[in-house]
Each structure stands twice: as structure tokens, then as C-alpha cells.
Design a protein around this nucleic acid. Sequence first.
DNA 1: TTCCTCAGTTAACAAATGATTAAAAAGGGG
DNA 2: CCCCTTTTTAATCATTTGTTAACTGAGGAA
Lengths: 227, 227
Amino acid sequence: MSAHVFIAEDEASIVSLLKYNLEKEGYKVSHSENGEDALKQIKSKQPDLILMDWMLPELSGVEICKNLKKDNKFNDIPIIMLTAKGEEEDKIKAFDTGADDYVTKPFSQKELNARIKSLLRRSKPQSSSDIVEFTDLKIDRITKRVYRKDKEITLGPTEFKLLDFFIKNPKRVYSREQLLNNVWGEDIYVESRTVDVHIRRLRQAINIQNTKPLIRTVRSAGYSLES
Amino acid sequence: MSAHVFIAEDEASIVSLLKYNLEKEGYKVSHSENGEDALKQIKSKQPDLILMDWMLPELSGVEICKNLKKDNKFNDIPIIMLTAKGEEEDKIKAFDTGADDYVTKPFSQKELNARIKSLLRRSKPQSSSDIVEFTDLKIDRITKRVYRKDKEITLGPTEFKLLDFFIKNPKRVYSREQLLNNVWGEDIYVESRTVDVHIRRLRQAINIQNTKPLIRTVRSAGYSLES
DNA sequence: TTCCTCAGTTAACAAATGATTAAAAAGGGG
DNA sequence: CCCCTTTTTAATCATTTGTTAACTGAGGAA
């Protein structure tokens, strides 16, 4: 699943250059040449990232930026401002309107790609790496192995999924309901006590004698993974 | 509550310049001159943002960066790389190791401030909205934990809900009736004296010896949370 | 001021709620 | 059909909850 990059830029030559390069990187790309239309398209398409010219016909990049950052639904979309001016003050202004990064023309495609990658990584935590660590726990999603303090631990499939889910949001308390929906699946019906049983098995597997247990029980609320 | 910025940099002149400027901006600042120590400090202090020199004694910035980005507990801390080199390839490498931004020395303090602001804005919201504070009380609805003066306090489920309700409208006085409706639920019938008992339990849990009590009794009216 | 009354405080306890655990039953590949 | 995992069940254990009743103290009346 590739990210969707939206370009708001009126110079055709730049658009085609960007488009070519971004598509080569594997992004889905769409664009608009005018500010008003750009805003409309962004709101309907909800891209993952926006490259926006500072100056745009109809509605300036600054205006669009402000508009998007006001709206809860769109203020998470990272925005990179493109501009011909290299002046200090403009950079500050760009950041102040809510832009997340700033690139001056002419820009290097390589650097732009790097900045895009960085912003996307930040806004898409779910597509995180295949090896995740939390304190002394390490889980490898590829080989399906789990380690505690570099010692391997064997888990049943359900326990693995359970731990994998917990590790995505450590310290957060999940209700049995939430765990069932996220680990077992929305449409599967099992008793909520079943969760307890798997929590117990997971605890037994990952615990180390005389150490603070990793899974916390929050009475009448659920469970969480602690450090 | 101001953000905490950590500086990992060995050139004293740069550190003092940065420190001066960041503190003027209202950030809490701490620093380390050596890579190994920096990593240790970062893990214990958990700053909100890191400014890191590309080259550091003991353990290079790149290494620290990689190390932090692997661990779920720290990979949300934004990192800005500081470097003397202005070369293209280094920028790419910096982003590849997981840095979130990149600034070349000599840098403009104004631009750095803008970039810091942008990164903080981006990383804060997920954690802040479900944490409520009132004077020295802090309640985290995600992890279901309560703190007084940064020391954790354990509450039973009802006391937690009670405090959570009070903190939504501090200083406002609620009758037992209102508390029952809002904390216990509209359709549940319990004696109104029960409220007193839970108020007492909550008081015992959150009070500190020789300090003004946080919950005020308003005779023949109800209770309120005071500062 | 003193005394009385009423509202709030407190401690103790029994009941109920929720979590843990072990063991049996039920599935589901190989 | 056997082995391994998952789910259910039910007994047990732990904590929380609501109730009761005695106690305390504030504030008004005399």
C-alpha cells in the first residue's frame, strides 16, 4: 500500500518533474494547478502528504495550509512548502502557518525524497518496522520470534498476536473488548474470559522470576504492557 | 508545561549558544557532551526532542539515532541532526537513520526554532489530549494512572471515575445527586451516603500530609475539587 | 457562651464483582 | 486419528463496593 502524495503547484514543468520522480519512488501522485481546486481535492482525496507551492493562483499556499491545519480531519496531513524564495523570513512564516517542512527551489530531488520519507514515517506509525523493541522485549514479525533480554521465548500464535498488539501502544490500557476486536478480529465471537486465559499464558511465557511483571491488570478496565 | 529539549553536542560554544536560545524560548534544556552518556540520559529523562551532533565522542550521533528508533519507547522522540558538512549524501544518510530533520552548521537560530516548533507540534497531540492536569494532579485516561506531584497514586475504579469527573470542572460544587448520576450512572440506585464514603477514600488517596485538602465539603450542597 | 441538632466523617463488615487459575472440552491441521 | 492450540467452564482468590451505625463537629437558637 503506497502513500498518496498531492502536489499543489502551477508551473507545469515542476509538476511533471515531481510527478515523474515521485511515481518512480512508488507513490501515488495527484495534483492541481490552482489553489481553490487544490483545497477541494485535498479534502476529498485525503492524501498522505502535500507538496505545496508558496504562491498559487486563486488561493495561496499559505491560505490552504492555514485552512487545513484548522480542521481536525486534515491537520495531520504533513505539508511541505515549495518556494522560489530562499529568504529566512519566509521559512519562519511557512512553519508558522503550520507547514511541516520547507524546500527552496531549485531543490534536489534526493533531498526532497528524504524529507518526504521522514514525514511519512512520522505520520504513519502503523507501517512501522518488522522488528520492534520495547525495553528488553524484542519481537520479529518476519521470523515470528520473540526475545526477552536476548533470550528467545516461544509463544503460541494467539499469544504472539496479543503481544504484537500490545507492543504497538505500550502502557496503554486495552479492554477485553478492544483486545478481542484487534487481536481476534471484529466479527469473531468468543467469551471475554478467553482473553484472561491468553493473558495468563503470555505472562507465563514472558515473565522472569523476581522481576516486575510486564503485563498490568487494571481492574474493571483491562490490561496494558508496562516497562 | 514546557517541552524538554536534549542537546547531544561536544563543542561547548555551540552548546551554550543553543542552551541560551532555547531557554529564552521557554524550553527546558539538558545536554551531554559524549555519545554514550547522551544515550543513557535520553533513556532516563525521555526528552520531547533531541538536537544531536552528527559526530560525537564515544558513540556517534548516527548510532544513537538508530538505537533510539528501534525502541518503541523512544522512537517517537523527534531528532534533529546538527552537522558541519553540507553535503547532499549526508542529508540522505541522516534521514535514513531515522532523524526527523537536519540542520547544517552554521545554522540560523530562528530557523532552528521554527523546525523545533514544527516537530514538537507534530509529536505532541497524540499523547496530550487524554492527559488532564489540574494544579499538581495529573490523570492519564489512556494508561489509567493518577499522579500527585509526579508521584503515582493508586485509586479504585470508582475513585478514579470520581476524580476524573471532578477534574473536568474544578472548583464547581456537585451535589451527591449529581455525582451519583454522573459517576455511577443515571439508572443505578445507591444510597447517597455512599458518595461520602467514596469521597473519603478519594481524599485519603490523594491527600498529602500537612497540605490543604483538595476536596472541599460544602455543607448541605455537596463537594468540589479545589486548588 | 452553651447546648442541640443536623450534616458530614469514619470504621467495620458483608456482599458482590472481577481476576486468576486449572482442568476439561472442542477444534483443526498434519 | 493424534497432537497441539484454543475456548469454555467453574472453582477459588482478591479487591472493591455499598451499607450500617457510631462518632464528630459546625452553626444556629436561646
